[in-house]
Amino acid sequence: MAKPLLEVKNLRVSFKMYAGEVQAVRGVSFTVDKGEVLAIVGESGCGKSVTAQTLMRLVPSPPSVIKEGSSIVFDGEHEIAKMSESQMQHIRGNEIGMIFQDPMTSLNPTMTIGAQITEGILKHQKVKKSVAMARAEELLTLVGMSNAKERLQQYPHELSGGMRQRVMIALSLACGPKLLIADEPTTALDVTIQAQIIDLMRDIQQKTDTAIILITHDLGVVAEMAHKVIVMYAGKVVERGTLDEIFYEPRHPYTWGLLRSVPRLDSDKNVELESIPGTPPDLYAPPVGCAFAARCPYAMKVCQEIDPDHFVIHGDHTAACWLNHQDAPKVEMPVGIGRGAHG
């Protein structure tokens, strides 16, 4: 059996602050195979972006600390959690690319687009500048930029938001990485441009067979692109499975809440959209039991006292919720989600 391209085990990341230690990521584990799209979803502050940036070792240390026992194995041999900065410079941009949330703040305003795209190519591939510039022009054409040669001479402020995001995608693909991490790649864009960027990323993934980790809270984007999904809450994975399992057979109340907050066009019922009441817990002092218990309408006494392990639903579909225990009371999935919501 082939090894996964990326294997994350028991990843724990904390931030040491004056007031104490913020446990931002608490024992996250997942795998990504070659050519696969994994979506990581959850509310703001659940640990998605810290997880993604830790994979690239971009979280400043101090104040961040990758805890002992955390493991991030890339391509079957590189233990990223223990790599030095000089070792990471070979991996970062070359083997793993990243698309950031806001291209305006991620691109250098003092450098031309061409200089920024060729910087990584010149560093990692040791080619002549003319070859790197030709590659940059090819990449801009690949991501759907018109007049690619002229765009290389422009600065970020001369481009629209959608064009800057295309530049970010071109930049992340410059060295032909095996894995692409997209952190909220469509957040700052309008709906029409969002759809274009999603189509572009899906097209590139199919053409290049690049694996993608998609960090988002937009379940519409997930439905368009992902093969597998992990749902995060309060720094932990609470449910994992295939796209169909998470969308049509979810088994965690938090996943139900996320799905009920999204409008559906395939429902034959007049189902009201619902928000999840309450707020996420303070990760300075995480709760003893299930972190979602205070907001969960189905919480039981055991939920307040013991943090549940992942219960296997079927195959690789698991959910960390006591409702999946054989002795738990049977709870019907809320109206408006699951296969029963289809018209």
Rank of each mutant, 00 (worst) to 15 (best):
M225A: 11
H227V: 04
K228I: 00
K228E: 13
I230H: 00
I230A: 08
V231S: 01
M232P: 08
M232W: 08
Y233P: 05
A234L: 03
A234W: 01
A234Y: 01
G235T: 11
G235F: 07
K236R: 15
V237A: 13
V237N: 00
V237F: 01
V238P: 10
V238W: 05
E239V: 14
E239H: 06
R240E: 14
G241K: 08
G241Y: 03
G241M: 12
T242L: 05
T242K: 11
T242C: 02
L243K: 15
D244Y: 01
E245D: 15
E245I: 10
E245Y: 05
I246S: 09
I246A: 10
I246C: 09
F247L: 11
F247A: 09
R251M: 13
P253E: 02
P253C: 08
W256P: 05
G257T: 07
G257L: 07
L258V: 13
L258Y: 07
L258C: 13
L259T: 10
L259A: 14
L259H: 10
L259M: 10
R260L: 15
R260F: 02
S261M: 03
P263C: 12
P263Y: 07
D266S: 06
D266Q: 03
D266F: 02
S267Q: 07
D268L: 07
D268Y: 11
K269N: 07
K269E: 14
N270C: 03
V271H: 04
E272Q: 12
E272I: 09
E274P: 00
S275K: 07
S275G: 13
I276E: 08
I276L: 04
P277H: 04
P277N: 12
G278P: 03
T279W: 08
T279C: 02
P280K: 01
P281H: 02
D282V: 06
D282N: 15
L283N: 11
L283Q: 10
L283V: 11
L283R: 09
P287F: 12
V288C: 00
G289A: 09
A291M: 01
F292E: 11
F292Y: 15
F292W: 10
F292S: 09
A293C: 04
A294L: 05
A294G: 04
A294I: 00
C296R: 05
P297Q: 07
P297N: 09
Y298N: 12
Y298A: 05
A299P: 10
M300F: 01
M300G: 00
K301C: 00
K301M: 06
V302T: 13
V302A: 10
C303P: 02
Q304H: 14
Q304L: 14
D307C: 14
D307K: 12
D307A: 15
P308Y: 04
D309V: 06
D309H: 03
F311R: 01
F311W: 02
V312I: 15
V312F: 00
I313T: 00
G315I: 04
H317R: 04
H317I: 09
A319P: 05
A319V: 03
A320V: 11
A320L: 06
C321K: 02
C321G: 08
W322L: 02
W322T: 10
L323G: 01
L323Q: 03
L323N: 02
N324K: 06
H325M: 03
D327E: 14
D327P: 00
A328F: 11
P329R: 14
